[in-house]
Amino acid sequence: MSDIEKILIEKSKNGDIESFERLIEKYQIVAFNIAYRMIGNKEDASDIAQEALIKVFKSLKSFRGDSSFSTWFYKIVTNKCIDAIRKMKKVKTYSLDKEFETDNGNYSIEVGDNRYLPDKLYEIKEKRELVHSALKRIPEKYRTVLILRDIQGFTYEEISRIIDNPLGTVKSRINRGRLLLKEILIEESELFLEN
């Protein structure tokens, strides 16, 4: 944490909006992008990112400074996103998670047969759209770590602190998340090519 950041945090704690806006200047775009990839659309992402930022502003007083501000900040952002996703699910009363969930609550992934992702993707130009919609289909606990790791480039240790889970959990979630995403990408690209 830089000295300037510390000063801005102290001022923000007293309700100084201008200092707070300076403090979050470089973080808010990342917050919005995390929300966008988590939620899937920009309107909701914008609302949720703002809610998260307001929460940061309100709870700054409880930030003691023994952890890094950015970790603390992104923890609030990811929690807000996960809360929002759960609320949305309640409304829909339909869970995509179930797709891969077995009876004992684990996620089963079939070992890939002769389906080979790079071949499938070769003909598809709209790779970005494909990835975006595939991400939405994997359960949020995997989606979170993949967004943090592969889109935003956080380290395993940072992710462990942000999602408040042991390093081992992070490792296995990243691994499983990528495997899941791979399966969905293959499926989606097949669907895409059929149409």
């Binding site: 990342v30 919005f32 966008y36 990839r37 992702l117 970005r128 592969d150 889109i151 990528r178 791979k182």
Partner: peptide
């Protein structure tokens, strides 16, 4: 395949 997945994700643009 997984290398491809990682590459695709890392190419996701920041909006």
């Amino acid at each position: 395949d997984l290398l491809t997945v990682k590459k695709l994700l890392s190419e996701t643009p920041q909006v």
